[in-house]
Computed example of a mutant assay.
Amino acid sequence: MFVKLVKTFILSIVFCATAQAQVQDTIVVARDGSGKYRNIQEAVESVRAFMDYTVTIYIKKGVYKEKVVIPSWIKNVNIVGEDAEKTVITYDDHANINKMGTFRTYTVKVEGNNITFKNLTIENNAERLGQAVALHTEGDKLIFINCRFLGNQDTIYTGTEGTRLLFSNCYIEGTTDFIFGPSTSLFDYCTICSKSDSYVTAASTPQNIKYGYVFKNCKLTAIVGVTKAYLGRPWRPYAATVFMNCELGKHILPIGWHNWKNPGNERTARYSEYMNTGEGASSKERASWSKQLTKKEAAEYSIENIFRTGDCWLPNK
C-alpha cells in the first residue's frame, strides 16, 4: 500500500496541470564505460536547459567520486540509481579545508526544481574534522526516494526558505545537526541514525512559514554507545520541527529538545510531537516549551497543507 501511495504521489507531481503526454529520454552513466557518460556531472551538463519534458539520468552501480551540481536551469529530471547501496556518489570535503566553510563542502548540490532522486547513496566521507555536507538543496519540489545519506556533522542542508522537499523511505545518518536549514521538508518512513551524543535537527524555519521539518512514521536509531541525543535545537529562533507517529529509540533524552543555550529561543521555537512510540518517546520530562499535539492539531499536518503554496505540487485526493 505504501509503495502504491508513493507512486501515486510522484505521478501527481510530474503530470500535474498537464493533459499532454510528456517525452522522456534516458541517459545512462556507468563507470565501466558501458553508458554514454562515465561521470554524473557530464550527464547533468548534457541536459537541455528549462525542459518541458522529463529526462531520466540512470546511474549504474559503482562509486562516483565527484562533486555534483544540478544547476538552476535544470528541471524535470529523474536521477535514478541501479541499486541504493551500490550506486554511490561520494566526496570528502569538510569546512576546515583551506577555510572552505560549511556551505561549499557538499557532495551533491541541487539548485534546479522538480528533481527526483531514487535508489542512490549520497555520501560525505570526510574525517570528523568539521562540518561536511553530503546533500545541499536550494531547489523547489525535490523528491528523494529510497536514498541513503551518509556523513557526520551537517549531513543534509536544506538551504532555501520556501522550498519544498519530500524524503520517502530514506536512510539518514550523522553526528551533530545532521538535518538542518530553512526549507519545508517532509520525512516519511525514514530511518534517522545518530552517530554521536548530539542533536538530530537544527531547523532555521522563517517566522512566516508554518511548516518546517515534519517527520512522519520515521524510526530514530543510534549506533552503539550513543545514549544522549536531542530531537533538535533551533538554529534560528522560529525553528519548526515535529515528530509524528515515529519510533524514538532510547538514545533520545527525556527532555527531547535543546534551546541552543539561549532561553529566548524557548519563546519562539515551534517544537512538537504526536503519538510517538519507543523508549525515547515519553513526554513526562519533555521540555516545557515543546508541545504534544492534539488529534485535531495533528490533522493539520497533511501533505496537502505542508506543501500548499498556491501551485499544484500536491497529490491527487
Rank of each mutant, 00 (worst) to 15 (best):
T160H: 09
G181Y: 11
F117T: 04
G181A: 14
Y37L: 12
D154H: 15
A202R: 15
N78E: 03
L220G: 00
I252T: 01
G278V: 07
H136F: 13
A95S: 13
L253Y: 00
S46I: 11
R267Y: 11
D140Y: 04
Q20R: 13
Y157F: 14
L142Q: 03
A269G: 06
T163P: 00
F307I: 09
Q20W: 00
K109L: 13
S272Y: 00
N217L: 13
E304S: 13
F178T: 08
D140V: 09
T294K: 11
S272Q: 03
S204A: 14
D311R: 14
I145L: 14
I122G: 01
K296P: 00
C147R: 09
N316A: 08
L150K: 15
C190Y: 01
G256A: 11
V224P: 00
K36I: 10
S198C: 08
P206N: 10
F307L: 12
Q153T: 15
G212H: 09
T163C: 05
N125I: 09
T8R: 12
N124W: 05
V242S: 14
E279R: 13
Y274A: 10
Y37W: 11
C170E: 04
A21V: 07
A43R: 05
A30K: 05
T241A: 15
N245E: 12
K296V: 11
S198Q: 11
S290T: 12
L231F: 09
I10M: 05
N124V: 09
D92A: 14
I143K: 11
I57S: 05
I172S: 04
G232Y: 02
T155G: 07
V29M: 10
L120C: 06
C193Q: 15
S282K: 10
R270Q: 04
Y213E: 04
E111T: 06
Y274S: 07
I27S: 02
G101R: 12
T268D: 08
L293M: 11
V224Q: 11
F103I: 10
I122T: 01
E82W: 02
V77M: 10
S302I: 09
F178M: 12
